[in-house]
């Protein structure tokens, strides 16, 4: 599994130490958002590199 970012780690730590369900639920959802952002950033960066390296357009 990919390495978790700083924000994800912080949010998961906050979730683990928060007894209130609603607040904990928000931290968990934000941690998931953070991971999904990283996944999409990596994908989009990869696609951008791939499209820029396009010999048929040289």
């Amino acid at each position: 599994m990919a390495e978790q970012t700083w924000a994800t780690q912080q949010l998961l730590a906050l979730a683990a130490q928060t007894p209130q369900f609603k607040e904990r639920a928000l931290y968990l959802a934000l941690a998931e958002l953070s991971e999904e952002q990283q996944r999409r950033l990596k994908q989009a960066q990869g696609e951008l590199d791939g499209r820029m390296w396009n010999p048929s357009k040289w």
Binding site: T5, W6, A7, Q10, L11, L30, L33, S34, Q37, Q38, R40, L41, A44, Q45, E47, L48, R51, M52, N54, K57
Partner: peptide
């Protein structure tokens, strides 16, 4: 600090998408 990080991620993602769209249109 965490909030800013998440917002920056989203802004970066939007920039990348804009650039990708531009390249796709050029292709």
């Amino acid at each position: 600090l965490i909030l800013e990080q998440l917002k920056n991620n989203q802004a970066d993602l939007n920039d990348l998408k804009t650039n990708l769209k531009m390249i796709q249109n050029m292709e």
